[in-house]
Amino acid sequence: MVNLRRVSLIAGLLVVAAAVVAVYAYQGTPSNSVSQVELPPLVEIPHKEFSPDEYRAIQETFWTKIQGKERQCAESFVFTYMGTLRRRCEIQGGAKDIGGGCAHMTNAMNYPEVLQAGLKHCDIKYSTHVPRPNNSFKPTPLRGAA
C-alpha cells in the first residue's frame, strides 16, 4: 500500500523546490533599468528662444494655415516625437512627482521648437513677417468739422 505521509512529504518538497527555482529565475531576469533597456531613438530638438512674432507665426502656421498632406506630415512628426518622449520618460522613470506623469510632461504641442521642427521636416515654409498697419490712408475730415 501507498504511504500517504510519504506522498505528502515528497509533494511538499517538490513544491518548495519549484518555489526556490522560481525565485532564482526571477532574480536572474533583467529589470527595466535604463542601462538594460534600450531607449527609443529621439530626434534632438534644441531649445530656442522665439520673439513673439516668430512664436505667433509658428503657432498660426501649424494650427490654422496648413491643410491636407502637409498637415498630416507635420502632425505625424509632432505626435511621433511626443510618443517617443513619453516612452523614454516612462523607461527612465521620470515625472513621478508630476500630476499626469510623463504624458503631462511630454506634451510637445506646447513647445514651438517642436512645431517648428515638424514644419521644417515637412518642408513647410512660413513667414515671421507681420504686416504693419497701413498708415498712409488718411480719412477725409467730416464736412463742417473745423
Rank of each mutant, 00 (worst) to 15 (best):
P30D: 02
G101V: 03
A19R: 03
T64E: 13
G94Y: 08
L115S: 09
C122H: 11
R6S: 09
T61N: 06
V21N: 03
N107I: 06
L142D: 05
I10R: 13
I66N: 03
L119A: 09
Q59S: 12
R71Y: 12
Q72L: 10
G100I: 06
P131L: 00
C102L: 04
Y126S: 05
E90H: 01
A103E: 12
Y55D: 12
C89Y: 04
T128S: 12
S31K: 13
I98K: 11
N134Y: 07
G94M: 11
Y81R: 05
F79W: 10
I124G: 02
L119E: 11
H121T: 10
E90Q: 13
P46F: 02
C89W: 04
N135H: 08
R71F: 11
R5E: 12
P40S: 02
G68M: 01
T29M: 10
Q36E: 13
F77Y: 15
P40Q: 03
S33E: 10
K120M: 13
G99V: 04
L14Y: 01
N135Y: 11
I98T: 13
V7I: 15
L14A: 14
T84P: 00
H47A: 05
S127L: 07
Q92I: 02
K125R: 11
S8Q: 14
R56E: 09
E44C: 03
M109H: 10
S76Y: 08
K125S: 13
V20G: 00
S31I: 10
V16Y: 06
M105W: 06
L9A: 12
P139F: 02
H121L: 04
C89F: 06
G94V: 00
Q59A: 09
I45Y: 04
H129A: 12
F77R: 05
T61L: 09
P141Y: 07
I58V: 14
A145P: 01
F137T: 06
D97G: 01
P52C: 01
G118A: 15
V37R: 08
N110S: 11
A19E: 03
V114C: 10
M1Y: 12
E49Y: 03
R88E: 10
R56C: 03
G144F: 09
E70K: 15
Q92S: 08
T64V: 05
I91G: 00
Q116H: 10
E54D: 05
A74W: 14
I66W: 04
C102Q: 03
R5N: 08
R56I: 02
T106R: 09
E44N: 15
I91P: 00
G101M: 04
L115Q: 13
H129V: 09
P30F: 05
A19V: 15
Q59D: 14
S127V: 06
A146I: 07
G118H: 04
E44Y: 10
V114A: 13
Q116K: 14
P41G: 05
P133Q: 05
L142F: 07
